[in-house]
Nucleic acid binder design. Sequence first.
DNA 1: AATGAATGAGCATTCATTCAT
DNA 2: GATGAATGAATGCTCATTCAT
Lengths: 193, 193, 193, 193
Amino acid sequence: MQYLKDEVKAAIKQAALEEFSKKSYNEASMRAIAMKAHITVGNIYRYFPSKDALFNELMDPVWKAVTQAIFDQYNEAEDPLLISGIITAIMGIYRKYSTELYILFHNSKGSKYENIRNGLVELIAGRIEKEMLVQLAQNGRKVKDPFIFQIIANAIVDSIYMIIREVGDDFDRVENLMEKTMTVFVKDLPKRL
Amino acid sequence: MQYLKDEVKAAIKQAALEEFSKKSYNEASMRAIAMKAHITVGNIYRYFPSKDALFNELMDPVWKAVTQAIFDQYNEAEDPLLISGIITAIMGIYRKYSTELYILFHNSKGSKYENIRNGLVELIAGRIEKEMLVQLAQNGRKVKDPFIFQIIANAIVDSIYMIIREVGDDFDRVENLMEKTMTVFVKDLPKRL
Amino acid sequence: MQYLKDEVKAAIKQAALEEFSKKSYNEASMRAIAMKAHITVGNIYRYFPSKDALFNELMDPVWKAVTQAIFDQYNEAEDPLLISGIITAIMGIYRKYSTELYILFHNSKGSKYENIRNGLVELIAGRIEKEMLVQLAQNGRKVKDPFIFQIIANAIVDSIYMIIREVGDDFDRVENLMEKTMTVFVKDLPKRL
Amino acid sequence: MQYLKDEVKAAIKQAALEEFSKKSYNEASMRAIAMKAHITVGNIYRYFPSKDALFNELMDPVWKAVTQAIFDQYNEAEDPLLISGIITAIMGIYRKYSTELYILFHNSKGSKYENIRNGLVELIAGRIEKEMLVQLAQNGRKVKDPFIFQIIANAIVDSIYMIIREVGDDFDRVENLMEKTMTVFVKDLPKRL
DNA sequence: AATGAATGAGCATTCATTCAT
DNA sequence: GATGAATGAATGCTCATTCAT
């Protein structure tokens, strides 16, 4: 009866994925997941010890991939194209785990993942700031309010998500838009700061 | 006793505003609102038939103002400053309803207001596209993928969100960051497209 | 409507007292208490923030009285009748809180009070042991297994409870039996050790 | 396949014995018993129709032995050594069913066995009373309040409980403490009554 | 107009028991 | 004979809403 178990577990994960993409971790309900999976609430607990564990099992691969990408970027040599490495990494992740990435970014409130999007934004903002400050200093200029780096980084993260969500499987188009977006946001950035 | 009634209603709305700006619609509690308004729970229901109605009444003016701004922009004559008109409009709304705007942008998930963001993005994207296509045409250039306008518009709206969320009540700083953001994203945009 | 509230609170406490004298803290059910009090579960929580708090409010006076008695005994000068002070104190407590004392001694498993009976036994055992070892040493004798002091102390505590439960309001008889019990258990104890 | 069945049944009983000696009837879990018996939950129900039935089948022999001992003592000729006959009987049972006796005494609350303790107390109290009254009568003395016999009997039973609980499987120590307890409580009892 | 006590459905989680295989 | 997946009622607790006063 092993195949049945696998089927049910898959059904629960699928149902949970649906529920968590509509409601945040906190608002999602185990009852709703059970209903979507056509099983009883109690039975979910044969497969996952808790709501938390279920959410974590769903998020774990994306979380690992995203943190790995962040970690790699921290340790790699300076990249002339700035955050392009991160973006490539995230695109790879999205291709595999589109819904999970959406949940991780938008509906993880209440779970241990709720700050990962911020982490990514912080990382990118830090990268941009570092680079820009160097370039601006060469011309004796300053930045009035460094919060602008957060804004740019946030826009980048959001754009990545939007492109991949809307353009989906057209790999070339995604790549083109990604490149264009980076150009629009960061090319000659010092001139506009 | 109409006078008293108005006072109480105002107190409830004020208290609700505070509660909804700290917690999302679902997480906010009628008890907490009642306490903040120095009123009993039951009494709220003499003024508002439900939590939903209270939330809606709170959001209604901002919602109207924002949709009005969108509508006006759609119908108005071409603005040489691009989307700056919309931004100005939003800043006007923000000066009047900063908290409500914050709630509308960040805590309206699940309510009927959650799509107002899309409306804004569409409008701004349309504006940018129109303007840019004109300018590019003058130089005989084209845009490969017009989706980039959606991305830029989305980034602008998201930045508004973010600025309001993080900078909050410091009106001058909000204005400065708004301006800088617009500069970074759209100044000399044709050159980067 | 204040009197009503007091009535309901009293009803809840009464119902809880009944439930907790039949089931241990862990096994007792808030639903059962609600039913006995002819109210809904949710309403209990208007009066007590948790099962724990309800139990504690019930047990607090007895607990304070018992620990006070223990504390007093620890600090008082040596009493020639050994534990008679404690016994008197406990008798006083029982007259006021018979059911609560029963619960405290027999049904507090799972609560923070679950070790108080042991504490009392330990205290009395320590007292007896101290006294006996002195007396035995004078005759060059020893005690083979000091666990016997625990047994005697336990018997004393249990007897106190039994006497008061069975004899109840007949103060003189309780006193007589208490005295007789102490005589039976500890008079000339060194000779029997 | 009767042989196999017997093995499994024995394994279940052994596992249940372990579980019930650690947790009370209510707190014990069929899952835990199944795991300890290296068997599935459902399979237990082929051997025992319910948790209750399993508990009862486990307790039955001890229960029978104890009640038999009580019955025998009631009908037997006068024993010059007072209640020592009962104690000897209980010690015999203990040697055979130490765990079951422990469960019967400490974890049978709520089951049909919870009153066996009272039976024992009554029997022992009757025995002591009878014997003491004879001895006291020889010296022309009386007992003021015969409830003291209940108290002594209760203390004895409680001590048996306690010794078994705390000393557990050290048979020699149990026997020594049993003997010492009897000495402390009933040796030269007439002198202290 | 206002109070605040009461309700009832909801939440995550557990567990004895049943039953298709 | 045995499996273990599934059930359903129970647990403590929360909260928007209702209603007698």
